[in-house]
Design a protein around this nucleic acid. Structure first.
Length: 415
RNA sequence: GCCGGGAUAGCUCAGACGGCAGAGCACCAAGUUCGGAACUUGGCGUCGGAGGUUCGAUCCCUCCUCCCGGAACCA
């Protein structure tokens, strides 16, 4: 894409009503636009990043047998009244129609997915299965904060699974945990899994996936030399004590952002809806249910928080809005401009995902913008580089530069 | 909803004793520039809203709205 066609622009300063690094950089770069506290619109660059995150999640959920759906976000109040959520879930947005009919906005989808599952699962032969979707969620937070880390409307992947037995649930639970680790790893983030409380809807322990960052809202204690990690709210062992798992190190405490969670829901929701299936002996049984969430927009915010430097965002290749930022420094030289245009066309022909800075502005502004936007690889074509018959290749993350000939650049980028 | 802070140009901010409201950036036009947000010249406010005090309020008082931080909460 030509940057001159991109309708968004960068800005030098962050708006004064944003303090969180993720929101400051994402707004300055033109990835998101704030509508009100806790609610953001996603602009072209932001949508590109979010789509890549969603696709990684989609691939991993599909790989473990998840089936993608898109459920309603406008919910009938009756379903929430059946489960008790109407009166007990304080973050539930409740709205009323002109005729005073009541609705809820989806803050989670058990109330919708359970009846759907019920419709199709009448026999033990129909189990197990897992349904997921990626979409908007609404939560009536008393205090939205931290940019896109904790909003009233946000993106989430939520998956729900239904099983015949606890053993089968446990098997799938573990499968999902492994898939989640792959998601975070592919997004360039190092996540830890912690034990945490199940919240208001489950008496069992849940697992949360945590990425260390001061922008988070949870405190965890973890071990450096093994995988032990727990939310301080449930940890029986405190900071500085010996790791109960490996016994080798003392535990450290850190701030972390929850980027996913998995819950054993037991039979609560199927029971609320009278969801039973026939077992082999013809008896009615209630399925065991699990739910699994990843906040897609929070994941995006976390990546910014964790990976950005003083110049701007540093996207991992896997979720960057573009793979390559081609920056033309022409100084008004038409031949050079034509040369850059040619290179851009060649990139497109070779399916290289490129943002081409063809704007008629000074070099310094282009460099500053490139660093702010954070595309992993920056190519510069200028009089200087042309004299040597090539382009400069700069890595955003390290700042290191190399020189590659014009004829070899496509091959260089494709490997 | 609680505690604290805040709201002045599109953006970032200054401002005064209560007395004609400013700068930089951005935007438009022209020119000079052209590898780190450059420069010159000319073109844009309901001082968040509503009351009150006052000859006069952006400034003082009251209420409200919105925003930020914190606490609490956190499917």
């Amino acid at each position: 894409m030509r940057q001159s066609h991109l309708f968004t622009k960068t800005r030098k300063s962050a708006p004064k009503d944003e303090v969180a690094k993720n929101a400051q950089l994402l707004i300055r770069g033109g990835f998101i636009h704030k509508e009100m506290a806790g609610v953001y619109s996603y602009l072209p660059l932001g949508v590109r990043v979010l789509s890549k995150i969603e696709n990684i999640i989609r691939e991993e959920m599909n790989a473990i047998g998840g089936q993608e759906v898109r459920m309603a976000t406008l919910h009938p109040s009756e379903n929430w009244k059946k489960t008790g959520g109407w009166d007990n879930v304080d973050v539930l947005f409740k709205i009323q129609s002109r005729t005073e009919k009541e609705y809820a906005l989806g803050q989670s989808e058990e109330e919708i997915v359970t009846p759907i599952a019920q419709e199709y699962a009448a026999s033990y032969k129909d189990l197990p299965f897992a349904i997921y979707q990626i979409g908007q969620k609404y939560r009536d937070e008393l205090r939205a904060k931290s940019g896109i880390m904790r909003g009233r409307e946000f993106g989430m992947k939520d998956m729900y699974s239904f099983h015949e037995s606890q053993a089968d649930f446990d098997r799938f639970y573990e499968t999902v945990k492994q898939a989640y680790f792959r998601v975070y790893q592919r997004c360039g983030l190092d996540a830890k899994v912690t034990e945490a409380s199940g919240g208001s809807f489950s008496e069992k322990l849940s697992y949360e996936f945590m990425v260390l960052t001061d922008a988070g809202e949870d405190d965890i204690v973890y071990c450096d030399c093994c995988t032990h990690c727990a939310n301080v709210e449930v940890s029986k062992v405190a900071e500085g004590e010996t790791c109960p798992k490996c016994g080798k190190s003392t535990l450290k405490k850190a701030r972390a952002a929850e980027v996913g969670n998995v819950f054993d829901l037991g039979t609560k929701y199927p029971k609320s809806f009278g969801f039973t299936y026939k077992d082999k002996d013809g008896n009615d049984q209630t399925p065991i249910m699990g739910c699994y969430g990843i906040g897609t927009t929070r994941l995006m915010g976390t990546a910014v928080e964790v990976l950005a430097d003083e110049k701007g965002i540093v996207w991992p290749e896997t979720i960057a809005p573009f793979d390559v930022h081609l920056v033309a420094i022409t100084g008004g030289n038409a031949e050079l401009q034509a040369e850059a245009d040619k290179l851009y066309e060649q990139f497109k022909e070779n399916d290289i995902d490129v943002l081409y800075d063809d704007r008629d502005i000074r070099a310094g502004e282009k460099f500053a913008d490139a660093e702010l936007i954070g595309i992993p690889t920056r190519l510069v074509i200028s009089e200087k580089t042309m004299q040597e018959g090539g382009v400069e290749v700069a890595e955003r993350k390290s700042g290191s530069t190399t020189f590659v000939s014009e004829s070899g650049i496509i091959e260089h980028l494709q490997k």
